[in-house]
Design a protein around this nucleic acid. Structure first.
Length: 297
DNA sequence: GCGACAG
DNA sequence: ATCTTGTCGC
């Protein structure tokens, strides 16, 4: 049936193609063919109008004393980020999990909406998990929980920042792509480890700001049969310490409506000194907070 | 058959 | 992802 026409584009209730929902009850073969269809529907090119410089976050949130308050009002212009109400809304999404204490696994999905560097809203959802984690099928485990959290969010996302891969995926349809296509909202995937593909250069001990393309390898089905392996994402060194301990790079890839190159630019702009981009970092802390409250109950 | 594998 | 204190280094 057709989605309600009165809902804004990008609203979780306004899913134009319900047949693409990450239904956990599908067979493995059905999940995989659904991903091939998603990849064919996805756009790995810029179609968003978001200038990385406009969504850049200059100051990292101080999470040592709880989460920053959500506020709609503009802040005094003492810093580049003042909470400009006309700036694009970037939504970071992350998850935490409740152990199978009562026999049922449950996911804590957290969404944090940020506008010009200022948190404007938090939304979360606790939902049951029906299937285990299977490399390549993450969206079928966490997709529904994520949609539930986004459903609870009033703000309209202009960009989704998902934890996990987008195009860096066996069928080029990671969780960032799945969610982005379903809602037809620009999205990017930020992963802490590489699922598949190969970096052009070694990623060892690189300085902050460094990046290298990740190209499709034999494990990527859709990799062109030709010798020209497509760039499906980038390894990006978001942070590095002067000496001592080394930090691993981030693996960023397009989810939907964003090119590989712009994906790196956006993630870089959203980083403010820590390894993870602020939307993800704050969503991570928020997910933990929601989990603590749930466990305490 | 072996290896590799986001969260 | 999750189970978890101290500890090395700037």
């Amino acid at each position: 049936m057709a989605p309600p026409a009165d809902l804004p584009q990008g609203h979780p209730d306004n899913i134009e193609r319900p047949e693409l929902l990450p239904d956990p009850s599908l067979s493995r073969a059905e999940m995989e063919s659904l991903q091939r269809e998603l990849a064919a529907t996805a756009t790995f090119a810029d179609d968003h109008g978001i200038d990385p410089a406009v969504v850049a976050i200059d100051e990292p949130a101080d999470l040592t004393d709880g989460l920053p308050d959500a506020r709609q009002e503009t802040l005094p212009g003492t810093h580049p980020n003042t909470g400009d109400p006309d700036a694009p809304v970037v939504v970071g999404i992350d998850q935490a999990f409740l152990t199978p204490d009562d026999g049922e696994d449950r996911a804590v999905s957290a969404a944090v909406a940020i506008r010009d560097g200022v948190v404007i809203e938090y939304a979360s959802a606790i939902t049951p998990l029906s299937i285990p984690y299977i490399p390549g099928l993450l969206a079928f485990r966490e997709g529904e929980p994520i949609l539930a959290a986004l459903d609870a969010l009033d703000a309209e996302p202009d960009l989704l920042v998902c934890d996990g891969s987008g195009r860096i995926h066996f069928r080029e349809a990671g969780i960032a792509t799945h969610v982005g296509v379903l809602l037809d909202v620009p999205s990017v995937g930020v992963a802490k480890s590489l699922l598949c593909g190969v970096p052009d250069e070694s990623t060892d001990e690189r300085p902050a700001g460094w990046r290298t393309p990740i190209r499709a390898d034999g494990s990527v089905e859709t990799a062109g049969s030709a010798g020209d392996a497509p760039v499906i994402g980038h390894a990006f060194q978001s942070r590095q310490y002067p000496n001592s301990r080394r930090v691993n790079p981030l693996y960023v890839s397009p989810g939907h409506r964003v090119s590989p190159a712009t994906t790196v630019e956006l993630v870089e702009a959203l980083c403010a000194g820590y390894k993870l981009p602020e939307p993800t970092r704050i969503a991570d802390a928020y997910a933990d907070a929601v989990k603590r409250d749930a466990v305490r109950a």
